[in-house]
Computed example of a mutant assay.
Amino acid sequence: MTYSKIIGTGSYLPAKRVTNDDLAAQLAAKGIETSDEWIVTRSGISARHYAAPDENASDLAVNAARKALEASGLEAEQIDLIIVATSTPDYFGSFPSTACIVQNKLGMRNNSAAFDMGAVCSGFVYAMATADAFIKAGNAKNVLVIGTEVFSRILDFDDRSTCVLFGDGAGAVVLAASEEPGVLAVKLHADGSHGGILCGPANPSNQASNQKFLYMDGPAVFKLAVSVLEKVANEALAHAQMPAGDIDWLIPHQANLRIMTGTAKKLGLPADKMVVTVHEHGNTSAASIPLALDVAMRDGRIKPGHNVMMEGVGGGFTWGAVLARM
C-alpha cells in the first residue's frame, strides 16, 4: 500500500515585526484604545509580522517552500504537484493562481500541476487532504503543500476587534509517496450556513456587497470553533483506530490561545503536548499550522515516529483534521 508522508517542512515570516505595543500606539493615533494586556488576555497574541509593500503571498510562499525542499532533500524539479492554500492570492480570483506564480519563481517548467486551495484558515488541512489523495491514487509522488497569507492587506485598522488578531506568513511541507505510514487519517467538513460570521472583502463582481475588509463575529466564531475542532479530531482518531492518548503533538490552527487550550482540554491532552506559536505571529490563516509544525520540527520537539494531530477551522464555514505519523 502507498502512503503519503511528510519529508520536509519550512516556514517564513516577513521581517517587519509589530508588537502589541506598536499596534496600540498606531491605533491610539486614531483615537482607538487598546493595549498589550487587552490583546494578550483575549487572544494570547503578543506580536505579528507584516509583509513589505513589495512582498506578495507568492514571495512568502517561495521562501517557505525553498526551506521545505531543502529539508526534504528534493529538488524543485522532482515535485509533481503544487497546492497553495491562501485567501490572499497575488491576483484577484487566483487568476493566475498563486501556485502557478510560485512554480515559476521556483524555476519549474511544465513538470508539475499547480492550483490554489480556498478554505481560509482550514486551507492547509484541505490542501494536505487533497495531496494525500493524489499520492494514494498514484497521480503524484511528491507534492509541495503551502499555506501563505498577507492578511494585513485586508484588515480594517479602525476595527480593533479584528486588526489586532491577524498577521502575514507562510508555511510549507513536502509530502511524498512512502511504504511507511505517514498520513493516517483526514476528515473535512463545511457548513455554508455559517458563512456570514467570518468573511473577507467582497470582490468587484459581487454587486450585492460593498464590504471592503475582513469581517468577523468573534463570539460566534469562538463558539463554533471550540465545538467542531474537538469533534473532527475525534473523527480522525476513530478512523485511525487510535486513542487520544497516543497523540504526541496537537497542532491546532493558531488563531486564539483560548480556543486552542479548550480543544486540548476536551481531547484530554495536557498543555505541554500542544504546539503554540500564535503569540509570535498571530492568526496567519492557512499558514498557521505549517508554521507551527516547522517550528516544532526544527527545535526537535517533533521526532520520527511521533503522531501529530493538525486541525483547523475557518471561514466558509470549514473545518478539518489531519492525523500524521512523522
Rank of each mutant, 00 (worst) to 15 (best):
M1L: 04
T2R: 11
T9R: 01
K16S: 14
K16A: 14
D21L: 13
L23M: 01
A24M: 01
A24C: 01
L27K: 08
L27Q: 08
A29G: 09
G44C: 01
I45K: 04
A47K: 01
S58E: 02
S58T: 02
D59N: 12
A64D: 05
K67C: 07
A68M: 02
E70K: 12
E70W: 11
G73A: 03
L74S: 10
E75S: 12
I79E: 05
D80F: 14
D80A: 10
T86P: 10
T88F: 07
P89V: 14
Y91S: 13
P96G: 05
T98W: 06
T98P: 04
C100S: 08
I101H: 13
V102R: 13
N104S: 09
M108N: 01
R109N: 07
N110Q: 15
M117F: 13
G123Q: 10
Y126I: 11
A127V: 11
A131S: 07
A133M: 05
I135K: 01
F151E: 06
S152T: 07
L155W: 13
S161M: 08
L165I: 04
F166W: 06
F166N: 07
G169V: 00
L175T: 10
A185K: 14
V186S: 15
K187Y: 15
D191E: 05
G192V: 04
S193W: 05
A202S: 03
Q207M: 06
A208I: 03
A208R: 04
Q211L: 02
F213S: 03
M216W: 00
M216C: 03
G218E: 08
V221M: 01
V221G: 01
V221K: 01
F222A: 09
K223M: 09
A225K: 12
A225C: 12
A225F: 11
A225P: 09
V228C: 12
E230D: 13
V232E: 15
L237E: 10
G245A: 07
I247R: 15
I247P: 14
L250P: 03
P252T: 09
N256A: 09
A264N: 13
K265V: 04
L267A: 08
G268R: 07
A271N: 15
A271Q: 15
D272L: 10
D272C: 11
K273A: 13
K273P: 11
V275L: 14
V276I: 15
V276F: 15
T277W: 11
V278M: 10
H279N: 05
H279F: 04
N283Y: 02
T284Y: 07
S288L: 06
I289C: 12
A292G: 08
L293M: 09
M297D: 15
K303V: 10
P304V: 01
H306W: 13
H306P: 13
N307L: 15
G315Q: 04
G315E: 02
G315A: 04
W319K: 03
R325F: 00
